[in-house]
């Protein structure tokens, strides 16, 4: 992990020399086993950059905040699609952006790691040993098997080396996801329930949504200038009010179902919606359901088409006859 961190700092320094105006990466968090997004605006700020298995955030969406600056961004395999998606939908000017890819050995579930490490130990180094991360702490060495400590999304990961980047740091990482693991296993379980049980499952989850919209804010596919759910101002867009702001079960379900539908075929699978949810709604269960259906029904969408819903085949499966 150390080399990647060093490389990042060097690259950032070089880019600033070449006229870069903003570098979006990660720095260590203020608490152990945590990283956070970091915005370096000048040469002197690059030393704080790090990369470690706690850099789970997808930084792509931050690019939208700097439309006029020459910006560099660090992406993992699962984040690269987000930059692509934002560029494809004209939210970003690709010529102003330098995309820096880092090989990813998987991201760790912080709670589980903390529970494993000695409470008063300070992490001094982390090494990726293919099947495990080795933590050096002030209390000694700890080997954390990936299988047991990776985030759920990393266990089904198929794209841990970014593509379409301008600059790739380090060596290509070996595959992280467990082979043979069905990414749709949970979706299938839910689908197998009878309708009332499915309704109960989702109602329990949706009931706790605060409608903080963090899932939307972080989502690289939710890139509307003004989200339809906020167009509640009469006179605006001929005054169509799609959804009440009330935080009730029907409104919450409406919001999440339609949001999932809006990102159908455009979701890059980064899982940020789920990560940022303060009430831990497993939102990827919605996105993955759609991804599975799209895959089953329509297969891959041609690259020149904006999304699966912007095209058709006359022979598409017809479930309405």
């Amino acid at each position: 992990m150390k080399e990647i961190t060093e490389m990042l700092q060097q690259v950032a320094a070089r880019l600033f020399n070449e006229g870069l105006e903003m570098f979006i990466g990660y720095e260590s968090g203020s608490v152990p086993a945590k990283a956070r997004p970091y915005f370096a605006a000048v040469q002197g700020e690059t030393a704080a950059l790090v990369f470690n298995p706690f850099c789970e955030h997808n930084l792509a969406k931050y690019l939208v905040r700097f439309p006029n600056a020459k910006t560099a961004v660090v992406v993992k395999g699962c984040d690269a699609g987000a930059v692509e998606r934002l560029v494809k939908e004209r939210n970003l000017d690709r010529t102003r952006i330098t995309v820096i890819g880092v090989p990813c050995g998987g991201m760790l579930a912080r709670e589980r790691v903390l529970a494993e490490l000695p409470q008063d130990g300070k992490i001094t180094a982390i090494t990726d040993r293919r099947d495990a991360f080795v933590f050096q702490t002030s209390k000694g060495e700890h080997v954390l098997e990936k299988k047991a400590f990776l985030l759920a999304k990393c266990l089904i990961c198929t794209q841990n080396n970014p593509t379409g980047v301008d600059l790739m740091l380090g060596k290509e990482a070996p595959p992280v996801g467990e082979t043979g693991k069905d990414p749709y296993a949970r979706v299938k379980e839910i689908s197998a329930l009878d309708p009332p049980a499915r309704a109960a499952f989702w109602d329990r989850l949706m009931d706790r949504c605060l409608r903080c919209y963090a899932c939307r804010e972080v989502c690289p596919a939710c890139s509307c200038t003004e989200c339809c759910f906020e167009q509640a101002v009469p006179g605006w867009q001929q005054g169509a009010i799609w959804l009440s702001k009330a935080v009730t079960l029907p409104d919450n379900l409406h919001y999440h179902v339609i949001r999932a539908f809006h990102v159908a075929g455009r979701c890059t699978g980064c899982g940020e919606c789920e990560r940022v949810c303060p009430v831990r709604i497993p939102l990827m269960l919605l996105n993955r359901k759609l991804a599975g259906d799209i895959d089953e029904l329509y297969g891959p969408t041609p690259p020149d088409v904006p999304s699966v819903l912007c095209t058709y085949a006359t022979g598409d499966r017809d479930e309405f006859t």
Partner: peptide, 15 residues
């Protein structure tokens, strides 16, 4: 088109 709301994704164009 309400241009203020349009993000220019052009999902509308092919349909």
């Amino acid at each position: 088109v309400n241009e203020a709301l349009c993000t220019g994704c052009l999902a509308c164009q092919p349909v």
